[in-house]
Deep mutational scan, measured.
Amino acid sequence: TLFEALYDYEARTEDDLSFHKGEKFQILNSSEGDWWEVRSLTTGETGYIPSPYLA
């Protein structure tokens, strides 16, 4: 399933992933509550992002 970022986000820890509004992601793991592990389709990087920032 693909999701798109609604807002920009700046990583706060080394496990987080910074991203920009409009960036698209593949969800790798959504079992961690509000923090999902994703792969950016723009950069190929993986990390955790806050799920409320996605649509």
Results as ranks from 00 to 15, higher is better:
residue 28 L to V: 07
residue 13 T to A: 11
residue 1 T to K: 11
residue 46 T to S: 05
residue 3 F to W: 15
residue 32 E to V: 10
residue 51 S to F: 10
residue 49 I to F: 02
residue 36 W to S: 00
residue 30 S to D: 13
residue 33 G to K: 08
residue 11 A to D: 02
residue 32 E to P: 08
residue 36 W to V: 05
residue 29 N to P: 00
residue 26 Q to E: 14
residue 40 S to D: 04
residue 20 H to C: 10
residue 15 D to V: 13
residue 5 A to N: 00
residue 1 T to Q: 12
residue 49 I to S: 00
residue 6 L to C: 08
residue 8 D to G: 02
residue 16 D to E: 15
residue 26 Q to Y: 12
residue 40 S to C: 05
residue 23 E to S: 02
residue 11 A to S: 13
residue 50 P to N: 02
residue 26 Q to T: 09
residue 47 G to T: 10
residue 12 R to H: 10
residue 24 K to E: 04
residue 53 Y to A: 14
residue 39 R to L: 14
residue 6 L to K: 09
residue 54 L to E: 04
residue 28 L to F: 02
residue 29 N to V: 07
residue 49 I to K: 12
residue 4 E to W: 09
residue 27 I to T: 02
residue 32 E to S: 13
residue 16 D to R: 13
residue 2 L to F: 14
residue 2 L to N: 04
residue 2 L to R: 04
residue 6 L to S: 07
residue 5 A to H: 04
residue 32 E to Q: 14
residue 49 I to L: 03
residue 6 L to M: 11
residue 51 S to R: 10
residue 23 E to W: 13
residue 29 N to Q: 07
residue 9 Y to M: 02
residue 51 S to E: 02
residue 21 K to N: 03
residue 11 A to Y: 02
residue 32 E to I: 13
residue 19 F to V: 09
residue 42 T to D: 10
residue 49 I to T: 02
residue 12 R to V: 13
residue 4 E to I: 15
residue 26 Q to L: 14
residue 18 S to E: 04
residue 17 L to C: 05
residue 41 L to C: 09
residue 52 P to Y: 15
residue 9 Y to W: 06
residue 25 F to H: 00
residue 10 E to D: 14
residue 37 E to P: 01
residue 18 S to A: 06
residue 19 F to P: 01
residue 47 G to K: 06
residue 34 D to L: 13
residue 27 I to C: 03
residue 39 R to Q: 11
residue 53 Y to Q: 07
residue 14 E to W: 08
residue 42 T to F: 07
residue 15 D to G: 14
residue 6 L to G: 06
residue 55 A to W: 10
residue 27 I to A: 02
residue 6 L to P: 06
residue 49 I to M: 06
residue 15 D to E: 11
residue 47 G to A: 03
residue 4 E to N: 04
residue 41 L to H: 06
residue 16 D to S: 14
residue 22 G to E: 01
residue 40 S to V: 07
residue 33 G to C: 11
residue 22 G to L: 01
residue 25 F to G: 00
residue 31 S to F: 08
residue 13 T to D: 08
residue 35 W to S: 05
residue 2 L to A: 05
residue 24 K to V: 13
residue 20 H to S: 11
residue 43 T to I: 01
residue 18 S to N: 03
residue 32 E to K: 13
residue 2 L to S: 07
residue 23 E to L: 01
residue 6 L to I: 09
residue 25 F to Q: 01
residue 33 G to F: 08
residue 32 E to H: 14
residue 46 T to R: 09
residue 14 E to I: 07
residue 48 Y to N: 05
residue 45 E to A: 12
residue 20 H to W: 08
residue 38 V to Q: 01
residue 12 R to I: 12
residue 9 Y to E: 01
residue 29 N to I: 14
residue 7 Y to L: 08
residue 43 T to L: 00
residue 31 S to G: 10
residue 14 E to R: 08
residue 54 L to Y: 08
residue 21 K to S: 05
residue 41 L to V: 09
residue 4 E to H: 08
residue 25 F to M: 03
residue 42 T to R: 13
residue 13 T to V: 08
residue 49 I to Y: 01
residue 52 P to I: 15
residue 17 L to S: 03
residue 30 S to F: 07
residue 34 D to N: 06
residue 25 F to Y: 13
residue 37 E to H: 13
residue 29 N to R: 03
residue 28 L to R: 12
residue 15 D to F: 15
residue 21 K to R: 09
residue 10 E to N: 08
residue 1 T to M: 12
residue 40 S to P: 04
residue 7 Y to F: 11
residue 28 L to Y: 10
residue 38 V to S: 00
residue 30 S to N: 12
residue 38 V to P: 00
residue 42 T to P: 00
residue 43 T to W: 05
residue 34 D to F: 14
residue 12 R to P: 11
residue 28 L to M: 05
residue 14 E to D: 12
residue 13 T to L: 11
residue 32 E to M: 13
residue 6 L to V: 06
residue 32 E to L: 14
residue 35 W to Q: 05
residue 53 Y to R: 03
residue 3 F to Y: 13
residue 50 P to T: 03
residue 27 I to R: 04
residue 29 N to G: 09
residue 32 E to F: 14
residue 31 S to L: 10
residue 33 G to Y: 09
residue 39 R to C: 05
residue 16 D to N: 11
residue 2 L to T: 10
residue 10 E to H: 07
residue 3 F to N: 09
residue 35 W to P: 03
residue 15 D to W: 15
residue 5 A to P: 02
residue 2 L to M: 10
residue 25 F to R: 07
residue 41 L to N: 01
residue 36 W to R: 00
residue 45 E to P: 00
residue 1 T to F: 13
residue 48 Y to L: 12
residue 40 S to M: 04
residue 52 P to G: 15
residue 53 Y to S: 10
residue 53 Y to F: 11
residue 29 N to L: 04
residue 22 G to T: 02
residue 14 E to S: 12
residue 17 L to A: 02
residue 19 F to S: 02
residue 55 A to N: 10
residue 48 Y to T: 05
residue 42 T to Q: 10
residue 7 Y to K: 05
residue 31 S to P: 08
residue 13 T to R: 14
residue 37 E to G: 00
residue 54 L to Q: 07
residue 5 A to Y: 02
residue 51 S to H: 07
residue 25 F to P: 13
residue 41 L to K: 01
